[in-house]
């Protein structure tokens, strides 16, 4: 009887049969390291084997496909409406929370790896599973730093591509949008502090809110400017100050048959 339970305790959680549902280990997440230099004990990661938090059951076909390609949502077009929680919630997440929704891989998939190789391959690719958005970074020699860079890029892409619905009739710009507006905006208020520029990490949130509005008014800069207490010229300048913002707005305007901003 003892040996019975012993055998059970030896149960190998990992099964290789093709297409088996592996109680993985939250495999992808266990590769996501801390982005701070110090103790990671306070960080929230889904844990291997514990089945807590957002650990996922991943359908794994092991032949040649590593499980990181799994995607359980579909994306269409350039703008996505987040299935659960809006884009705003996504950007408000901490890095650790956001990473629990992501798969990460390192481009390495061929060959035996491990001691066999010296490739100093530090490139990192992060895929946000709910939206299918992928960001990558390869320029740094430390995988660690590339992870941080890829995550920053992912945030930027989420800001650009995940839209929140806006009620135009009752529109009131959210605080994060007010922060990136020029001081001369008539609705900004003096309590807002100085204008935040594209290099500030909080710019992404404001950019997202601005794009939400511009999508809601179907690309009309003058309509959006009115809602923000700005002249059309001032809002144009703000849009042109950030390359990715300009490109997102112009992509929308082109699709609506409008002239791109220059």
């Amino acid at each position: 009887m003892m040996s019975q339970s012993l055998l059970k305790s030896f149960l190998i959680k990992f099964r290789r049969s093709s297409g088996a549902t592996v109680d993985v280990l939250s495999y992808a997440s266990s590769k996501c390291y801390d982005f701070g230099i110090h103790s990671r004990s306070s960080l929230v990661y889904p844990r291997r084997n514990h089945g807590v938090g957002s650990s996922q059951r991943i359908k794994v076909g092991f032949s040649n496909n590593p499980p990181f390609l799994y995607n359980n949502y579909t994306t269409s077009g350039s703008a996505t409406t987040a299935a659960a929680g809006g884009g705003r919630e996504l950007l408000a997440m901490t890095d650790q929370q956001l990473m629990t929704q992501c798969d990460m891989d390192t481009f390495k998939s061929s060959g035996p790896g491990g001691q066999h190789r010296n490739k100093r391959e530090s490139a990192v690719r992060i895929k946000h599973l709910p939206t299918g958005i992928v960001a990558q970074a390869a320029e740094d020699r430390s995988q660690h730093k590339n992870r941080a860079a890829a995550l920053a890029r992912l945030r930027n892409l989420l800001a650009l591509k995940v839209r929140n619905t806006v009620d135009l009739d009752a529109y009131s710009p959210p605080q994060e949008l007010l922060l990136i507006l020029p001081v001369k905006s008539t609705i900004r208020g003096s309590s807002c502090g100085p204008q935040i520029g594209p290099n500030n990490p909080k710019f992404a949130l404001g950019k997202q809110a601005l794009l939400d509005l511009i999508f809601a008014v179907e690309g009309s800069v003058s309509d959006a400017a009115r809602k923000l207490g700005l002249s059309t010229g001032a809002l144009s300048r703000l849009i042109l100050s950030d390359d990715s913002l300009r490109m997102a707005v112009n992509e929308l305007r082109t699709s609506k048959g409008m002239k791109p901003l220059k």
């Binding site: 190998i12 990992f14 495999y27 084997n49 390495k108 998939s109």
Partner: peptide, 29 residues
């Protein structure tokens, strides 16, 4: 036999079976 429990195989970045992990059994059988 009986020395270890919860023996597990863990994948590496590239999806390869790379690590063997486990625990020493609480009682030695």
């Amino acid at each position: 036999k009986g020395g270890f429990c919860d023996v597990d195989i863990v994948l590496d970045f590239a999806g390869k079976e790379r690590f063997v992990t486990g625990f020493r059994s609480k009682t030695n059988y």
